[in-house]
Design a protein around this nucleic acid. Structure first.
Lengths: 119, 119
DNA sequence: GTCCATAGGGATTAATTTATCACTAAGGGA
DNA sequence: TCCCTTAGTGATAAATTAATCCCTATGGAC
């Protein structure tokens, strides 16, 4: 996972939340799982840009933090399915709110970034 | 600011939002400004752990992204005040929701991290 | 002149997160 | 046997974010 060198301030909800969900892909991953993409392969195909390795890592962390659960089937090819835990489900309203905000802000951000040559 | 090498996917609201707000301190900073801490010095004192340099950088980025505005007064010592823009204000509901979630999850996270020796 | 406080920035390094590439394992099919 | 799929991991490099340290500027107080 990575051994933190700087401790977490448990009294700041914002920091705690960031610890669990503040990475490039986790919101997307949880979103896809909630939409029914339960197998790693499917999630991988659903999210453009993510790599297999990173997906694997993030799934592991999400499981470690108790956001998702995992079921393995002794089939061939191997089948594994992930599902949201109750805690994970409690994130869904947040995720959709963030997504909505981001979509509304996207054109504005695009303008800002494009009209600024080298920042 | 930093010249991105990997482009942003403007069609994913989650990624767009993360670009603007997904850093260790930005939520905290916006939160403090909304609570009335308008001067950098005050924000610095209000947030435990942040350094002056990083606060300066984050304020700059938030301003660049249009989340906050800035007013300088020709006084001595120098006085500068930041305020939320309309776009910035539209983030407040999100921030309080994330904060609330984080606070509820904090004890659970603490348990997880403490009962796992070296992950 | 020296020190205070405030705000801002440059240069550099440390910390952290993502990406690349190359493995392993299991069993089916050509 | 060789290749296919799926899932998972180790080692390492690259990208990105945050932290450290030091410098500038302003004008008042001592």
């Amino acid at each position: 996972m990575y051994q933190r060198k700087i401790p977490i301030d448990y009294n700041c909800g914002l920091i705690v939340a960031m610890e669990v969900v503040g990475s490039k892909w986790k919101f997307c991953i949880l979103d896809e799982i909630s939409k029914g993409e339960t197998r790693p392969r499917d999630i991988l195909n659903a999210i453009t840009g993510i790599t297999r390795r990173v997906l694997q890592q993030q799934l592991k962390e999400l499981e470690f933090h108790g956001m998702i659960g995992k079921t393995s089937y002794a089939e061939v090819p191997l089948r594994v399915e992930y599902h949201l835990t109750e805690t994970g489900k409690s994130l869904l309203p947040l995720i959709s709110a963030v997504d909505k905000w981001g979509l509304e802000f996207a054109p504005q951000l695009k303008t800002i970034l494009e009209t600024t040559p080298t920042s």
